[in-house]
């Protein structure tokens, strides 16, 4: 009888921890329903807990995310059609003026591209094609050509293509006899940050500090990790450029391209020429709301080497605007200015 009691007690005490474990089961936060209100609240909360620029946007644009909630919640009701809800949600996100903040549905892509849409384009593809002609080379998306005055011209339209050390080295080898290099990144709206760094690493012989970064550590607007220094290492595979470089920028230089300009600013003998870049220094993450619409938002902050925000772009060393007279003569003011600078050097 005693043994039986012990057995029962043993088994019961073995099962008791199980009850404790069930009591601390992990559950997701209370999910919002797939109603207009539910989708609005879900989107506001995702941004509230994960977006990384609230403090900066409050300082620069006066955006108070709680006030935004009050203002836009009043515009949402259950009688709204799908497109109307989409418009209200996109308007709410547009308050942040962030090109990395998007709402994507099957019928539309919500965005705020004011970083370039409100400014002169300072780029004419037809004219640039005249400079490239038909005999230019292409190395994994990098178009390059030797201009008549012995200056190398590189057109880098995107960092989506897989630029590797080999591609860059073949290009630099071909342009080795040039007296200088023009890298034209106008209209480059980004891609992979590693590809931007791969290209930049061929323009420094030493490890250089390019900035700092900090990620969110919790749901609060001020929950950030201690900023960590970020360095650009010189390329170890292939060639490194040792002559003057001029990087041409406009307002469409965004995201990974903005980071490329940030890196090149720290490299020796490099001049940034053109217009202010578009910015987009946050690394975007993705999420979704109950109706399946995708949400993209900036999640990690990247600063420049002086711990300044580059979310709203980087100033060039030399400001240049496209001249109407040049355009009429099929000349690109940026390229011509860069060529004159190279010639004078």
């Amino acid at each position: 009888m005693k043994a039986f009691k012990y057995n029962i007690l043993s088994i019961a005490s073995m099962l008791l921890p199980l009850l404790c474990l069930y009591s601390c089961i992990v559950v997701e936060d209370e999910p919002f329903d797939n109603s207009n209100k539910g989708n609005f609240e879900a989107l506001w909360k995702i941004m509230d807990e994960h977006y990384c620029f609230f403090d900066y946007k409050k300082q620069e644009l006066g955006v108070d995310w709680n006030e935004v909630h009050v203002r836009y919640a009043a515009q949402v009701n259950e009688d709204m059609k799908r497109e109307q809800l989409f418009e209200v949600l996109c308007n709410m996100l547009a308050e942040l003026k962030d090109g990395h903040v998007n709402l994507s549905a099957a019928f539309d892509y919500g965005r705020n591209w004011s970083f370039f849409e409100e400014y002169p384009q300072n780029y004419n593809d037809s004219i640039v094609q005249l400079y490239l002609g038909r005999d230019y080379r292409i190395a994994s998306g990098l178009k390059y050509k030797l201009l008549e005055d012995n200056i190398g011209y590189v057109r880098c339209e995107t960092f989506v293509d897989g630029v590797g050390d080999g591609n860059v080295s073949f290009m630099l080898d071909y342009l080795a006899s040039c007296s200088g290099l023009i890298i034209d990144v106008r209209g480059n709206s980004g891609g992979e940050i590693t590809r931007a760094h791969t290209l930049a690493s061929h323009f420094t012989n030493e490890k250089v500090l390019i900035g700092y970064y900090s990620h969110k550590t919790g749901k609060g607007h001020k929950d950030f990790s201690k900023p960590v220094a970020e360095y650009l290492e010189p390329a170890t595979d292939g060639y490194r450029w040792q002559k003057p470089v001029i990087v041409l920028t406009n307002r469409e230089c965004y995201s990974a391209c903005n980071d490329f300009v940030k890196c090149m600013k720290q490299c020796p003998d490099v001049t940034i020429l053109g217009d202010h870049t578009g910015g987009g220094s946050g690394m975007p993450f993705n999420s979704e709301i109950p109706n399946g619409w995708g949400v993209r938002y900036s999640a990690v902050v990247f600063y420049d080497a002086e711990m300044n925000q580059t979310e709203f772009g980087i100033d060039p060393d030399i400001f240049v605007q496209m001249s109407g007279t040049d355009t009429e003569q099929n000349l690109d003011t940026y390229i011509e200015t860069a060529r004159k600078m190279m010639a004078s050097e």
């Binding site: 990620h215 969110k216 749901k219």
Partner: peptide
């Protein structure tokens, strides 16, 4: 990873 930390930060940086 930490709350908002990217894998790029862990493995690339």
């Amino acid at each position: 990873p930490n709350y908002g930390q990217s894998y790029y930060e862990i493995f690339e940086l």
